[in-house]
Structure formats: structure tokens, C-alpha cells
Amino acid sequence: MLAFVISRILQAIPVMLAVALISFAMFAYVGDPVSIMLGQDFTEAQRTQLIHDLGLDQSFLMQFATFIGNAVQGNFGLSYRLSRPVAELIAERAPATLELAFCAAALAMLIGVPMGVYTGLYRNSWLSRAFLTFSLVGVSLPTFLIGILLILIFSVWLGWLPSFGRGEVVQLGWWSTGFLTWSGIKALILPSVTLGMFQLTLIMRLVRAEMLEVLRTDYIKFARARGLGNRAVHFGHALKNTLVPVITIAGLQLGGIIAFAIVTETVFQWPGMGLLFIQSVSAADIPVMAAYLMLIALIFVTINLVVDLLYYLVDPRLRIGRGAAGGH
């Protein structure tokens, strides 16, 4: 078990290094930081001095090593646009994005899984057909369009929910949360639905397909032949066997939700990391972009590790297989 975790972490290191290289390359190839920082009027001496201060006269490898060393300590330098430490900017914005992603993912799982189970069990009921039709809409409509439609209906026509922002937030230490105020919760609803819609329909279709597959297996027939009730067969035996692929997809989707909250955050002017990223792109604020890229990579790598560990909990066959392999 421990050996497995360690080996996975070791595997993650090259991935992170590759992403770091790409992030680092942005500094060199997307615009020239020196000319950006010097502005219009400067002397040649100032320029040389700055290049030296920034360490740009060092070899490529030395620069990259410095970058990695700083990144590991959470130091990504100053934002060109806001002249504040990048780490601080991201830490400020992260709670908004993480809360939004959490709500969207919870929505997708809590509604998507039961809907998938239902449509798998009652294939021909009209409700299943309605769910499937609805899921086609969810899968095929682009996120920004869903967001704009929701704003039109619930903010403009009905006036029930705010169309932008986080509402009032409460500071819990460095974490700002919208869960503790009514306006914060109301503000979360539309963006969460928008962000979670695609994942919800995806998870529903996946669970449905897996349920149909599992219900055909011999062990389900045998469970029925042993006289087990429908509840035990469907939820005890069938659902658990559908979970392994669902965990994989749900995990990858969670990473996706965090990384691609950009569109939703833009539509709803949600003050999260995605919005920060978009603003940084338009201002060519490379330190922020680089840090964001590495953070998202780290999140993906972490989620993948967690997903692998969840397999362990769900499927006993993996425990033995890996255990034996690890023993050699």
C-alpha cells in the first residue's frame, strides 16, 4: 500500500517537471519580461542591471533550476499586471473556484448517479426516456450558452437568483466562504448548475451504461437465483460493480471542473482562479499563467492518485494483485 503510494508519487514527478518546463518556457517565448518591466524610457545600463537581477544572464538550466526551486516553495514571483506576489493572488482566488467546483461536482454525483441507476434499471419507462433526452441537451449545449440561458431565465425573467459575483462572503482565516450567507448560497446555484451540467449528464450516461452491463453478468443472475431482493441485487451487487469506472471518470472530471471553470467564471464574473487566468491572458501576465498551469497539473496528479487509492477500497482484486507485485 505505502509502496504503491510512493511509486505513484515518483511517477508524478516527471509529469510535474514537464509541466514546469512548459510554464517556464512561456517566460522566454511569450513576450520579453525585460521590456515589459522597463517600460518606455531606460538606459542600456538599467537594462543590463535588470537582466542580471532577474538572473536572465544565467544558463538555461540554471534558470530552470531556480524556477523549480522557487516553485516548490510556492514562489512564482510578482504579477506583471497587479505587481503582487502570484501565490498571494492565487490563494485569494482559490476558495471561490474550489467552492464552485465542489458544488458542481457534488451536484453531478448526487443527481447523476441516481439518475443513471434509475435509467439503467427502468430502461423503458417514460421518465428514463425523459432523462436521456435531457442528458442529450446537457451534453451538446456549450457551457457558456447554458450559463447565459440560466441567467436569462432565473435572473432576468424570474429575478430569483443573482446573475454575477459571489454574494456576501465570510472570511474564515485566509479562506473566504460563500456557504455561510444566504446571498452567498444563492449566488452559488446558477454557476454550479452551469458548471456541473455536463458532468452530470456524463456521469448519468456512464452509470446507466455500466448498470446495463453489470445487470447482464452471471453474478447478478446468480444473486437473483439465490432469492436476494431487488434492493440487495441492484444496490448491493450491481451498483458497487459499476463504481470503478465511475470513480475514474468522476475523478478526471473533478480536475476538469476546476481547470475549466474558466468559462463559467467568465460568464458569471465569478472571482475565482479561472477569471484571474483569463484576465492574466489578456494582459500577458505570464507569472500568473505559469503558476495557474502548474497548480492545475498538481491538482490533476493529486486527483489521479486519490482515484487509484479509491480503486483499492472498492475492488479487492487490485489489493491482492498490487500487494503480490509489491512483494517482489
Binding site: T217, D218, Y219, K221, F222, A223, R224, A225, R226, G227, L228, G229, N230, H237, K240, N241, V314, D315, P316, R317
Partner: peptide, 25 residues
């Protein structure tokens, strides 16, 4: 009928590799 299955009529299937649920002891 469900209450009869298992209690009054037991069943044995062909392939023991696929008849047992892999996730439960």
C-alpha cells in the same frame, strides 16, 4: 417467486469464475 428462489429451489450455474460477485467475500 423470489422467496422460493434460493429457499426452495437452489441454482448452480456453469461458470464459477463469473457467478460470484468479485467485490464481496
Amino acid at each position: 417467486m423470489r422467496r422460493i428462489r434460493g429457499r426452495e429451489i437452489g441454482a448452480i450455474f456453469q461458470d464459477p469464475l463469473t457467478t460470484l460477485n468479485p467485490l464481496y467475500t
